[in-house]
Design a protein around this nucleic acid. Structure first.
Lengths: 204, 204, 204, 204
DNA sequence: CCTTAAACGAGACGGTACGTCCAGTCTTGCC
DNA sequence: GGCAAGACTGGACGTACCGTCTCGTTTAAGG
């Protein structure tokens, strides 16, 4: 059995690719993910439907790449070091600062709608979910891992603590409140998370 | 603007309602949420489509009620006290036990597929999301709040800690790993979460 | 096998019957026959749907009875002799006069829409068609038969002519032009039909 | 107001068009016009419903074109001269022959059911009715007009007679008896119509 | 520079499901 | 028991998109 010959990526139209990203992000922002259709993306991008199906396997796939592209651009715009957790020596202060910045980002409408859409699709579509985690979520989390390891070296975190788990104490609650709208999100809230995570809730 | 007159709920067919719940849950389990269609639910339930649209506004709405019904039945089956966090006096042990039971439940296929579907839909559909949180998630979380308050009375948790936030230290990481498949879920993992949450990750 | 027991006609609601006739005629006039639904007739008449299905077998049946009722009332209103072809002794003049009156009636909107609807339904639905012919069309045609027989007695029509066929020479062309819109309908046209029918189109 | 852009007729699928004609005629013959649904035509033709709605505005429209196509094919099959009224010089004989052939055709089941359906729909739907008359009925009637004009030239019909009206004396009665089932149709009947029409019913 | 084959825009196609409308039946409670 | 009301199963409606499949038309590489 012969599979369809893979298209020749060298001849791919860059103009179309960018137009599709833009159209996909715009439509998701305007009408929401479920009402965004491949047909509409093609029409808005001035592109044939086949050009989308030639290079992507699904609407979710298009959006994932479009979002990664957007994230990549933003990162470049801010500067190469922007995506690291700061390390001033004061772990609590550093974590609080980053979480506050994250709160702001989570509610930036340019990010919120497509990010929610991808998260939702990933919950139900395992393949996409793993891609989202691997390409979008995990790289972010590794920045916390690095900061926590540095804190362990400095003696600010116990050596027997697993940083990959430890970071979830403050990251996951924030993620859940945002995704599921299960509670209010504020700087006070993220500050509290950092305090509880560092010192525990039991009496010292 | 005239709205459609509300149907008379006293004349509603109980037989149809139950058949629709059963069909919806069965189909979601068999083919997944996105491929579950209102048409298929109606056919499987031996019901006219209009009967579904008369009482529910969407596929997600049907599934939410079906799931609540299922959860209600399960609770009844196990007994009235089943839904409380145990209180043996040993907070760490109690929390670990409950989280271990939750892990089992999360991977019980009868619950997993519809629960994921509702969570995913809730992420993207605010109205449904709020219903899911209010009817499904928050009641569960309040059980932890109660246990933590009891622990505060017993001096096992500091008095200045907000229990509603504290519980997220161990519940949200588990929820996120399950929902987003962002890491392995095991008894060891949940035990660790409880330890970290109680005593913090900083040196004591 | 037992058939459904016939409803007890003595207990039938006269008020409902009349309301249904009125609603049916009104709706056919307003939205046309195909868009007239049993449900709408019931709603407009303030009647349950079952009351219609109890006494009539179809929408067409309702309309036929409603139309017969309307025709009966009109006849009564005009007087008992109104429905005969006049007999002044001048056959040509009498026929022309009746046809001119018929032209007026055919384009009276109170009659036109329901009459067309019944005719159309009768073309395709044999059972109804036979009822329409027997109850509506044939009685009218028999009035021409009577007039033509009288003309035969007076020597104005040949004795070997079949009046039931002869009348069709002027009635059917008019009927067809009206029903099928296959040509203009005017007094001049009907007058011409009478002339041609009486004296033929061949040289005398 | 923006109208939907017209589809590109040059890219239309001939295979689908023919399959739709065949399916429509077959279904109308088998289950009758009212029970023929667009859905069933599409299914039987192996075609998506949208392909029907793309090119036709209604079930009646499909049937009209299918019937015209059928009539066109029949005409071709019989030969180019088949659709003219014969002209042997004997007007009465020619008309009788053509009417007898028409009688046979009217009761040929391949023609009868769709023809009735179109006639019925045309009675109630003015737009379709005018199309039926213009494309189906009037061309046939013009053949009679031609024959009658030839008869006028030969002195067999009075010069002051309007052929377009004269033909209705024998055509319309036949049409009405067939359409409305208002009387028996036989060769004797049509022969009689021709006699009456040529020489009138009054004494000569 | 010119061929030529792939990618492209456009959009028709066979399908599936949508959410609505009605048909005809059934049930409930009033008169 | 007829009635108004209206919920029920069933099924067709006409629409919106899916993902596939031609159509010409660019367009860029290699001859």
């Amino acid at each position: 059995m012969v599979s369809k010959p893979a298209p020749d990526a060298t001849r791919r139209s860059e103009r179309s690719r960018r137009a599709i990203y833009a159209a996909a992000l715009a439509l998701v922002g305007e009408v929401g993910y479920p009402k965004t259709t491949v047909e509409a993306i093609a029409a808005r991008a001035g592109v044939g439907k086949q050009t989308i199906y030639r290079w992507w396997s699904s609407k979710a796939d298009v959006l994932l790449e479009a979002f990664l592209d957007l994230a990549g651009q933003s990162a470049q715009a801010v500067g190469q070091e922007a995506d690291a957790v700061p390390d001033t020596g004061d772990l609590a202060a550093d974590l609080k600062a980053v979480l506050r910045a994250t709160v702001d980002e989570l509610f930036d409408p340019r990010f919120e709608v497509p990010a929610r859409a991808l998260a939702a699709e990933g919950v139900v579509n395992e393949q996409l979910g793993r891609e989202v985690v691997a390409k979008l979520l995990e790289p972010q989390l590794q920045l916390y891992v690095a900061r926590l390891r540095s804190a362990q070296d400095a003696g600010a975190v116990r050596a027997d603590v697993d940083p990959r788990i430890a970071l979830e104490l403050f990251v996951s609650p924030l993620a859940q409140r945002w995704l599921q709208r299960s509670g209010p999100v504020s700087y006070a809230y993220t500050d509290t998370l950092v305090e509880y995570a560092l010192h525990g809730i039991a009496p010292r």
